[in-house]
Amino acid sequence: MKKKDFLIIVFFLITAVILWLLVNITLADITKGEVVIYKEGKVFATIPLTAEETVIVEDEIGNRNVIKVEGGKVTMTEASCRDQICVHTRPARKDGQSIICLPNRVAVEVRSTQKNEIDGVSE
């Protein structure tokens, strides 16, 4: 391994740390937030984070996801997909955190209900 290889590795690791810090600083804890559930890229349901609610997302071909909002956090309790990655994802509770089920094209996202001007850029 040459010296420049180490530099490349260090460069990527530093980039990762910076990105990680950025993500964690911008994801401030929120009490006033909402859970947005997307199916095939479209908004399926919007639930306040303070609610206690279970939502079932189903489509014509039998893909099924069960999403549970409880105690200020959201979890995917059940999914019909093969890999079950979404079910094993940690509960989402902060602004911007998400649970994604790629095979079923379902995304669950927590977002702050407080207005944030920066968020408009990514829309």
Partner: peptide, 9 residues
Amino acid sequence: VLRTSAVFS
């Protein structure tokens, strides 16, 4: 595919 930037985190 998912049309959400949340994946970036």
